[in-house]
Design a protein around this nucleic acid. Structure first.
Length: 557
RNA sequence: UGCCCGAUGGUGUAAUUGGCAACACGUCUGACUCUGGAUCAGAAGAGUCCAGGUUCGAGCCCUGGUCGGGCAACCA
């Protein structure tokens, strides 16, 4: 009954092949291994969707493992946010969260084993010397004078390193591989360094900490990981990953490292360092600022987990460098929000429209469907009266012929209510429109069946019933397509000064009064909005997630 | 003057024993519409980095180039 063969990406192809050949007993076990030194961003979301998604697809498992081998940069604040973000995206890790620090003991044992086999040694040289001796990619390195110490001496020294007898930086443990390897990572890589620093989990138990290369593959091995996915820059590490595994693997099981291209988004910076900078310098308001590409930022902006997962799905995975148009991310939210949000009346830049022939004091409850995209959607009543607010942009004194909205003498429908005709308008001394005067045609009430062709339909809010709100209009943080891609110009030079516009005097229909943080809506004809966490009853705050597609705005550009 | 990786419409991803280059976003038409939204219908846009080779047949295989990315933290 198989409908059509789904095309597989290169990782799926490998996994499928491994299952068919019964490699590792046919098990599929992945892991997502963040370092808890920052907040997760949309690039991590790609990796999360990949790893957890693959586990779901092939009936396997996926661990969450914190790669916490560098206590000076890591913090529990980050582990908490990481867990929250993964859960929010809708994934569940296998068992308890794991930590590389859980394996410090085992890693130490294995290091001792390597020393005993003459495959690792303690080097007393300072960092600069070691680095100098390592050579450059095009020239081989030279061997350390400490390279051929006796096993006994190495054992003694390494134990004393662990006991805390030496200062930071005074000694390291190195693997003895090949100082003339064309691969820099094979030139006697450092396995342990001395760091008298408190670790967020192991406290002061250790003062030597394993390096990434020594910790990662072994952690994979301990956890029974079969496919260890990482980004392209680790490709060159793979021979070392395999070398270390060769030293400890017993039996047939062995994890395999597979590299894929990280996500790049246009008009966005993705490096943790740069994001940290934006936060620390107060350029944005924290890691969850809605302009940040962090998962917490996107969440606060109003993105849904579904939209992010669909996005991850759509961009695919491959090994070539890529830059995804940020518009694709926006498409993904619109697509989902279009299906799930109620359409509300909200006027962001209000101007008064007075219906001169509408009875003073009369109020009609007009019926509006909450979401025409949803067949089961209910409807609600919205009060309509003589004075309503409409959007400033929906009126022009001298409109061009392609302008389908209100202008002197023009007719337009007020959504869900009546057709009105502009008879007059008033301006202040600066030329700003202050009031628009219309007459309405009582025959044309929505649902009455009586209508006539009008070019446009406007949203509105009854002035007497309107509630006020603050609306934060977010735009992309950078004006440049590739802000981090300029050699001589700092990325902050490309910040968009209009990335946040705060509107204080927006008018909303009264049913929005009880909206709670996180609630999502479509403001009719404008865009998708969600209630910010700063919002309080009586003091509502909305974030614009993304505007609606607007072919008029495009045309008038 | 090393080593590793990559190259398919504007962007991203497919093409699964070598068999008419497909899908999505974007763009442009048109239809419909009480959201200039959504939806629907259609179009333009690549001959697969280059040059050879193998083959009846190559985006896929081979050889040699070109271009791009990565590698010289006691970061991950």
């Amino acid at each position: 009954m198989e409908s059509e063969k789904k095309s597989l990406n290169f990782i799926e192809a490998i996994i499928k092949e491994d299952i068919e050949s019964n490699k590792n007993g046919g098990r599929v076990h992945l892991r997502f291994p963040p370092e808890p030194n920052g907040y997760l961003h949309i690039g991590h979301a790609k990796s999360i969707c990949l790893n957890f998604g693959l586990a779901e697809e092939y009936g396997g498992k996926c661990n969450l493992r914190f790669d916490d081998t560098n206590p000076v940069k890591e913090d529990v604040e980050y582990v908490d946010s990481i867990k929250e973000d993964i859960k929010w995206l809708g994934f569940k890790w296998d068992g308890e969260p794991k930590y590389a620090s859980d394996y410090f003991g085992k890693l130490y044992e294995w290091a001792v084993k390597l020393i005993k086999e003459g495959k690792a040694y303690v080097d007393d040289q300072p960092q600069e010397l070691i680095s100098e001796q390592r050579g450059v990619p095009t020239r081989p390195g030279i061997e350390s004078p400490y390279r051929n110490r006796s096993v006994e001496e190495n054992l003694d020294l390494f134990e004393r390193m662990k006991k805390g007898e030496f200062e930071d930086g005074s000694k390291v443990l190195r693997a003895k591989i090949d100082m003339s390897s064309p691969n820099m990572h094979m030139r006697d890589p450092i396995m342990y360094r001395i760091l008298h620093a408190e670790h967020h989990r192991t406290g002061n138990e250790w003062c030597i900490y394993p390096m990434y290369d020594w910790a990662h593959g072994q952690s994979d091995y301990i956890e029974g990981i079969t496919h260890s996915l990482c980004t392209l820059e680790f490709e060159i590490h793979r021979p070392l990953y395999d070398w270390f595994l060769d030293q400890i693997v017993e039996g047939d099981y062995r994890p395999r490292q597979i590299e894929f291209a990280r996500l790049n988004l246009s008009y966005t910076v993705m490096s943790k360092r740069k994001l940290l900078q934006l936060v620390e310098e107060g350029i944005v308001n924290g890691w969850d600022d809605p302009r940040m590409p962090t998962i917490s930022g996107l969440r606060r902006r109003g993105y849904t987990p579904e939209s992010i997962r669909n996005f991850a799905d759509r961009i695919g995975v491959a090994k070539r460098d890529n830059v995804i148009d940020v518009g694709l991310l926006e498409f993904s939210v619109r697509e989902h929000l279009n299906k799930i949000t109620d359409r509300m009346m909200a006027v962001l830049n209000p101007v008064k429209l007075i219906i001169t022939n509408y009875p003073e004091g009369k109020v009609e409850d007009v019926e509006l469907i909450n979401n025409p995209e949803d067949e089961n959607s209910a409807s609600r009543k919205v009060p309509f009266s003589k004075v309503v607010y409409i959007e400033r942009d929906d009126f022009m004194e001298n409109p061009p012929k392609k302008f389908f909205r209100l202008g002197p003498g023009r007719e337009v429908r007020l959504k869900g209510a009546y057709i009105v005709k502009c008879e007059d308008y008033k301006k202040d001394e600066n030329g700003n429109i202050t009031e628009i005067y219309c007459t309405y045609d009582p025959e044309t009430k929505s649902g009455s069946g009586v209508s006539r062709k009008v070019k446009g339909t406007l949203h509105w809010v009854s002035a007497e019933h309107a509630i006020n709100a603050e609306v934060r209009l977010y735009d992309r943080l950078f004006k440049d397509e590739d802000p981090a891609g300029h050699k001589d110009v700092d990325f902050k030079e490309f910040l968009n000064p209009e990335s946040l516009k705060i509107l204080k005097d927006c008018k909303l229909e009264p049913s929005l009064a009880d909206a709670e943080p996180g609630d999502k809506f479509q403001f009719q004809r404008i865009g998708y909005f969600c209630v910010d966490k700063d919002s309080k009853p009586g003091n509502l705050v909305f974030n614009r997630t993304v505007p609606l597609r607007d072919s008029w705005a495009k045309k008038s550009k």
